[in-house]
Computed example of a mutant assay.
Amino acid sequence: MQLKTIDKQLYRSRLNIVIVACIASLTVSSLAIAQILIQLFPSESGSNFHWNLLGVVISAIGLIMVLLKLKTHPKMQEVAYVWDLKQALNLIYRKNRKLLAAAKQGNADAMLALQFSYDGSRQLWQLDDNTITMSSLNEAQAQLDRWVEEYGVTLDVSTYHSGLLKAF
């Protein structure tokens, strides 16, 4: 995955549309499916919890399938990019302890993965207006910069790929 420049206002606008559309479709479809199931299979006890739950589950599965199909649509580009970025950052986060240990020993791939993580996190936090923990990110970046200088490593995040993480 490569980091891209994303227009924050366009991203927020499209994300809000996706969120509202998901909530509305999940609400309407789950109620409709549950009502159809209740009409087809009425319960003598009067409890329709299982039909309501099944309506929500079927609607959620349908919504996920629609989102996956629409992920490549041009109007979903920014939202899909952020979803993919979050997945890539999550993969790195799961290996963070090993990556930090390897970077401390001078491993260039570990440093590259950490640099991608820091740049991606910075971009993500700025897009979501979540700058509260930016100081801890800056501290981690400063530590990485010291290791890069100490070991004479050159980092180019455009060369990062998730395959680097298999070594850790």
Rank of each mutant, 00 (worst) to 15 (best):
A60N: 05
A60V: 14
I61W: 07
I61A: 15
G62I: 04
I64Q: 14
M65V: 05
M65S: 09
L67H: 08
L68K: 10
K69I: 14
T72Y: 11
H73Q: 11
P74L: 11
K75E: 02
K75S: 08
K75L: 12
Q77P: 10
Q77M: 07
Q77E: 03
E78D: 14
E78H: 14
V79W: 12
V79T: 15
V79K: 14
A80S: 06
A80Y: 01
Y81A: 06
V82G: 04
V82E: 12
W83N: 06
D84I: 11
D84Y: 12
L85W: 07
L85M: 02
K86W: 06
A88I: 00
L89V: 00
L89W: 06
L91G: 11
I92P: 13
Y93L: 02
Y93F: 06
Y93C: 03
R94N: 13
K95R: 05
N96Y: 09
K98C: 00
K98Q: 06
L100E: 13
A101L: 14
A101E: 15
A102D: 00
A102E: 03
K104V: 01
Q105V: 07
G106H: 11
G106A: 12
G106E: 11
N107E: 05
N107G: 08
A108H: 02
D109W: 03
A110D: 02
M111D: 00
M111L: 03
M111Q: 02
L112R: 01
A113M: 07
L114D: 00
Q115P: 01
F116K: 07
S117W: 08
Y118H: 13
D119S: 12
D119F: 09
G120S: 08
G120M: 11
R122M: 09
R122A: 10
Q123K: 08
Q123E: 03
L124F: 02
W125K: 04
Q126M: 04
L127E: 05
D128S: 06
N130I: 02
T131K: 05
I132C: 07
I132K: 12
T133Y: 08
T133N: 10
S136C: 04
S136N: 12
L137E: 03
N138Q: 05
E139G: 03
E139P: 00
A140L: 14
A140M: 15
